[in-house]
Design a protein around this nucleic acid. Structure first.
Lengths: 334, 334
DNA sequence: ACTCAAAATGTTATCGGTACCATGTTACCG
DNA sequence: CGGTAACATGGTACCGATAACATTTTGAGT
């Protein structure tokens, strides 16, 4: 219902046509500067609030960029989202956010809801989607960006890194520092594709280095975080020392493991190494600092923003693929 | 542009009026079941996509609930947001999220943008707003909920707790365990009103307990997090032992302090106590666990959802004020 | 003063649903 | 079998901004 003040009211107050008001408020250079000022003042005085809904309807431009994230409750994704927000905001666009809770089925439902809002672009986290999602997105002229992954058959543009490569950095480092018997700590096999890709990366890298079979430590169903890492290691007790290194699916999980290990009185580094993933703040601040991989969460967001600008400017032609890479950050736990 | 298929096309295909299609797709019980089925099939066949923008425009119901958060990059706010998302989604509404970056001026700008989308309710974090924000929100028939605070003169409904009371729990506990010389670790005085309220709460409680003047340790400008806590304590070095307890503005800051203290080889508990705020996961998992206050981030979200339902059902009449309270969670750092 | 392009503003017709009200159609009753 | 309520569907007029095109005003140059 708003205040009921419309462009017509502002126009009448100033003595111009609604069209001129429309132009003035959008900073159309064709409007005389003095007229614009008068319109602006009248709008303020009347308490006019622009109706984006009407604009979106008439101009077929919603001003929305739809984004799906597995969860905002993850500092890494939150960081990407923050970078997106600030960048996209400057372009006069708003983000429309949905959380998939790490489930592709939920993603499809979400994408359907988001598309109903006529977004001008769609940013998806991850490269695995249901057929339903794919067909929803295809065909429509909508720019699509997949991030946080480098899918083999992308839907459109891609800004991401290889989870598998990132993990091989970790494994390579562990091998170089004399570790052989690795255990991967992550969520149960299931919906979380990113976690699965990391697990696969560890297994592949271990095989490449001719290491013994990687043990799998199941920290529960996704999403797993600090408490899951801590709980599973606590439950294992001293059995954990049979491994040379705990390779964790994420920094929070690694922090949980670290904490449990410390609590048991074991010596990290001497008794076993711990590695994380994602370069979360907790890994940099904890004592000892956790060895991890920086996957440039913020830069992913920035790259996506740049790509979106390119798309809207028309500068981007074919599908773009940006690999932000990943780099080992050696801490004090390996 | 979507696929260009409209209700008219579906109606023509089935041989009914657009009005019937509209009703059928919204599950209006007045439509004959067989007709509805035929319409549904035709819609699928033609690849029809519902245009929420048009609906929002005509019916003046956007299906949006607008939410402002200081930042999603804060596990506490993210948790509240998550609770909101799931609850509100079930009611067929979408959240429209904006981040204020802890600045009330930014909040005003944001509220203006959000209102332009005609949300059906507005959920604000915090109880401090610019006059501009207040006047934007007032008068319009829009339900408003302020959360994470208990403002003296609320804009509408309130779901929150008293930052000051929460801090007095902490201080009371510290006094009971023999601490007298407290230092508050938080952001520089500035925009962050929640931080300021917590600081004031500590000072007030200390005065009440006739403690010496509380020292102020400035961890930088808001938002402050783990690294700021760690950095400021590292910079102080052993001088920090002049205090009996570090009372931190949040758990992440407390964790940073804890980490720095450990790194210096000081003994937490013997040399000094550390307390946090917010009951973040890191406080529960760290070793030692950090004493903190649970302010029920998730429950705030749930309460807001319940309130929204009540508002939309018409069950809620006057302004509602929910105090979710706060409770001390004693860890191993005090 | 007069021409003509550039600048500034106006007019009209929508965008795709749905609120509101009207109408046609069955089904059940005495 | 006529009457009436319940059911099912249709017609019309918008919601508020703006694209597209039309028109008026201004100002520079001759």
């Amino acid at each position: 219902m708003g205040t009921g003040v419309t462009m017509r009211d502002v126009a009448d107050a100033v003595g111009v046509s609604p069209m001129t008001v429309s132009r003035a408020l959008r900073d159309d250079p064709r409007v005389n500067a003095r007229t614009r000022t008068r319109i602006r003042q009248a709008a303020d005085r009347l308490g006019y609030v622009y109706d984006s809904t009407a604009q979106a309807f008439r101009s077929r431009k919603s001003g929305f960029v739809a984004v799906t994230l597995p969860s905002v409750n993850n500092a890494n994704f939150a960081e990407t989202f923050r970078a997106l927000t600030s960048g996209v905001g400057e372009a006069g666009l708003q983000l429309l956010l949905g959380s998939t809770n790490y489930r592709v089925a939920r993603e499809e439902e979400l994408v359907r809801q988001l598309l109903a809002r006529n977004p001008e672009a769609l940013v998806l986290t991850g490269g695995h989607h249901t057929d339903g999602t794919r067909s929803l997105v295809q065909g429509r002229g909508l720019p699509v960006i997949e991030m946080w992954d480098l899918p083999a058959s992308p839907l459109g543009h891609v800004v991401g890194f290889s989870n598998s490569d990132a993990m091989s950095h970790i494994v390579g480092h562990l091998v170089a520092t004399g570790r052989r018997q690795l255990a991967f700590v992550g969520a149960s096999e299931g919906a979380d594709m990113r976690g699965a890709a990391r697990r696969a990366g560890v297994v592949r890298a271990a095989r490449m280095h001719r290491l013994p079979k990687v043990a799998m430590i199941d920290a529960g169903s996704a999403p797993v975080s600090m408490r899951h890492g801590a709980a599973v290691i606590e439950a294992m007790g001293r059995d954990v020392t049979q491994y040379d290194a705990l390779v964790c699916v994420s920094d929070p999980v690694a922090f949980g493991c670290l904490s449990a290990v410390q609590r048991m009185g074991l010596r990290v580094l001497d008794d076993l190494a711990i590695t994380g993933f994602g370069h979360f703040e907790v890994a940099q601040v904890s004592s000892p600092r956790i060895t991890t991989v920086n996957v440039h969460a913020k830069e992913i967001g920035r790259e996506v923003v740049g790509l979106l600008q390119g798309i809207f400017d028309g500068a981007v032609k074919g599908p773009v693929r940006v690999d932000v890479g990943s780099e080992l950050v050696v801490g004090e736990t390996s």
